[in-house]
């Protein structure tokens, strides 16, 4: 049965995004939430972000500075999180 996984991207942004991409390898549903800060503009994060979008994964954020992601306030994210089987804060 497919699992639903939320990855909460906090400190280790590059590794969190790389891990998110890896998690879809067994066909689980993986959504990404970039929390509390702007995604650093590095070559690594840009590459992973591009791949996440190519894979049509949901990328949401509570930080309005993050362009190209769906903005949701904390309350809305908190309402969604209990719907996942695993919540991985990185």
């Amino acid at each position: 049965m497919q699992k639903k996984i939320a990855v909460l991207v906090r400190d280790g942004q590059g590794e969190a995004l790389r891990m998110s991409l890896g998690l879809i390898l067994v066909d689980d549903l993986v959504d990404v939430y970039v929390l509390d800060r702007k995604l650093q503009a590095t070559e690594e994060t840009a590459l992973h972000l591009e791949t996440l979008k190519e894979m049509e994964m949901q990328i949401r954020t509570n930080c309005r500075d993050n362009e190209g992601m769906e903005y949701l306030p904390n309350e809305e994210i908190a309402r969604k999180l209990p719907q996942y089987d695993h919540i991985l804060a990185y």
Binding site: L35, D36, N74, E75, I77, A78, R79, L81, P82
Partner: peptide
């Protein structure tokens, strides 16, 4: 810095 706010937000649903 942010754990308290998230715990509070999650407590509205869990």
């Amino acid at each position: 810095a942010s754990s308290g706010a998230w715990i509070e937000a999650l407590s509205r649903n869990c």
